[in-house]
Nucleic acid binder design. Structure first.
Length: 139
DNA sequence: GCCAACGTTGGC
DNA sequence: GCCAACGTTGGC
């Protein structure tokens, strides 16, 4: 299967990109939204996942990779919720802020903007590449 | 099954 | 800290 691209959100006060870098790998638990769960279930090993920090940072800060597909989320009090395993790949040279994403006409349709409360969302390859480029030094 | 009330998320 | 948007719950 061809590689897919995603974005997950986290409040850095709860779990930050720096935390993932320190841990190297983590179980992405705590998703309690049906739409987000659909996306978690669709993730495949090797898919690239943007790490977006909400609230205080409001920027895409790093790239991670799916290392294990969805399994039962053991932190949930009911069965049926899932988590995936993510590992840190690399930080963006410069964070791509929400404001920056909003400036880009070709990124106007990303769920990050259109559905601000969704915490796990898909991105097209073009959208992913575009944001990666914005995150390069001097972009 | 509808809708009001409420809680949560997240931008500003 | 405020508020809009959204999801969930519960009464009818």
């Amino acid at each position: 299967m061809t590689k897919q691209y995603w974005l997950v959100k986290s409040e850095p006060e709860a779990y930050s990109w720096a935390d993932l870098v320190t841990e190297k790998e983590t179980d992405w638990t705590g998703v309690r939204n049906y739409q987000a769960r659909l996306h978690l279930n669709a993730m495949r090993k090797g898919d690239r996942v943007f790490f977006y920090e909400s609230v205080s940072t409001k920027a895409v800060v790093g790239i991670s990779e799916v290392t294990e597909t969805a399994t039962e989320d053991k932190t949930a009090d009911k069965l049926g919720w899932v988590s995936v395993k993510l590992k840190a790949v690399k930080a963006l040279s410069q964070p791509v802020t929400l404001a920056r994403v909003k400036e880009e006409e070709s990124l106007a349709n990303v769920a990050l903007i259109r559905q601000s409360r969704l915490s796990v969302m898909p991105l097209s390859k073009d959208e992913f590449t575009h944001i990666v480029n914005l995150g390069k030094k001097g972009a």
